[in-house]
Structure formats: C-alpha cells, structure tokens
Design a protein around this nucleic acid. Sequence first.
DNA 1: ATAAACCTTCCCCTAAAGGGAAGGTCAAAC
DNA 2: GTTTGACCTTCCCTTTAGGGGAAGGTTTAT
Lengths: 129, 129
Amino acid sequence: MNIGEVAQISEVSSKMIRRYEEQGIIPKAGRSSSGYRQYTKNDVHILKFVKKSRELGFSMKDIKQLVSLWRNKNRPSSQVKKIAQKHIEELENKLHEIESILTNLNHLVENCHGDHRPDCPILDELECH
Amino acid sequence: MNIGEVAQISEVSSKMIRRYEEQGIIPKAGRSSSGYRQYTKNDVHILKFVKKSRELGFSMKDIKQLVSLWRNKNRPSSQVKKIAQKHIEELENKLHEIESILTNLNHLVENCHGDHRPDCPILDELECH
DNA sequence: ATAAACCTTCCCCTAAAGGGAAGGTCAAAC
DNA sequence: GTTTGACCTTCCCTTTAGGGGAAGGTTTAT
C-alpha cells in the first residue's frame, strides 16, 4: 500500500505518518524502487493504535513508549499503568484549572450588563490587581 | 524605568514585554538616548492587565482587543461581554472533552492490575478499534 | 579602570499539526 | 505514444505563548 491509502484507512494524515516515522514512533517504511513508502496491514494497525492514543490525549512522547510496550509481549503492565496514571493526573490538574477560571469568568459575565454603556465589571476586574 | 524593573513589578518577563510590544498589544516604549526602553507607571498598569487576562486563559488575540476596549472609555460593554462569553464557551468545550477522556482512562486504569504480568486492558483498548 | 549587571537584537527550541512549493512517478485516457 | 491528473518525495513556513542563549553595547559600583 502507498501512504495515501494507509492514511485513509488509519485516519492519520500522510503528513503525520511521515512525521511519526521521522520521530521513531512507527517503524521506517520500506520503499518501492521509485522511492514510494510501502505499507502492510500491520503498519495500519500501529497507526490506529497511535491515533486512539492521541484521542485519549497522550503526548507523542508517551505514545512512543506505549507503542514500544505494546509491541513487547513481555512488558509488565505496571509500566503501562504508570503512564496512564501520570496522564490522568495531568488531565485532572488541567480540569481543575479550567473549572476555577470558569467560576471566575462566569461571575464577571453575570455582572456585566453587556449593552452600549462603557461600564464593565469584566474590565474593572482585569484592571485592578 | 528600564524593562527589568517593569518586568519585576508587573510579573511579566522582559522577553514577553518586548514581544507584546512587537505584537502591538502594548504601546511602543520610548527610548533613552542609548536605546534602552523607558517605561512609566501606566505601562506597568497595562502589563498587569495583560497578565491578569492571560491568567484567565484569554488568547493574545483576545487580549489585544480587551486592552484596546479597556483604553477606549466609550466602549460598549457588550463587546467585552461577547469576548468573555466566547472564551467561556471554548473553555466549557475543553472541559467536557477532558471529562470524557478522564472517564475513559479511569475505567481502563481500574481494570489494569499493574504488576509484572504483560496482560494489559489499557493496551488492549488502544489496540482494538 | 574594570567587573557586574543591565540592556539591545537575533536566532533557535518547545508540541502537534497543517499549508504549500518544487519536482519525480504512475496509470489511464486519448 | 504522449498527455494529464493524481499521487508521491523532500523541504520550508506557520501556528501559540513563551523560554534559552549568543554577541555585543551601556550603566553603575567598586
């Protein structure tokens, strides 16, 4: 298979497939005599794994490790779990931060009449420290 | 005041003060005879406004507009409110996305024993599409 | 006079993509 | 048998909100 077909099946763009190869996240593809990258079903499988991992918000650094653990049939599941737990922690931190910002913003917006007049508690709050 | 002092007071790094100037977010600073940027209390005031806005997660694009509205004493508060509401919507979307990912990840992690054995529901889930 | 602490501009790096140019290849239609 | 269009290649630029650091000029204190 050429890269375009694989991109369509895996739903990972050709651009990103090349980049993942460059970053060592997926194995280097074989080449046709004219230099086109050649892929197998297994490559599609890996790319789908990568895509799913991205959808769960893992960083490419994490995904590199996850792919390597996935392909190592003797991995200890504790290593996988550790990566996932660290990611969960980071997401929870981000969640709390966003929640706190939203609380602030909602208060401000509620108090702003939002009409033609210039008085604006939002700007007032941003101004005063 | 030189840039370093302003940076310390406003808690915005010298680097970023220069960049904000470049981006037209803050007015161009005057220069001393030797080329050093010169600042007044008012500049500190603006920088604090910018910093507060960043802490609430506004993009620099939004902040540019907010600063301009803040300095325009005739602005309609509706414009400010609109920017804030759009930002709230975006944050809420991000929040929901993170919540949904966390639900998924937590299920996976709960089912992974996380020991020396290779069986791992996390990898299984990432693998199967 | 000299050293330390400033300041200036300039360029490179981050993460995860996308855009697009310039040029080579392949297959089908004419 | 050539042309055309769709594909592929590499290379470089752009995005966001910063940070790192080099090379060189200035100011201030010793």
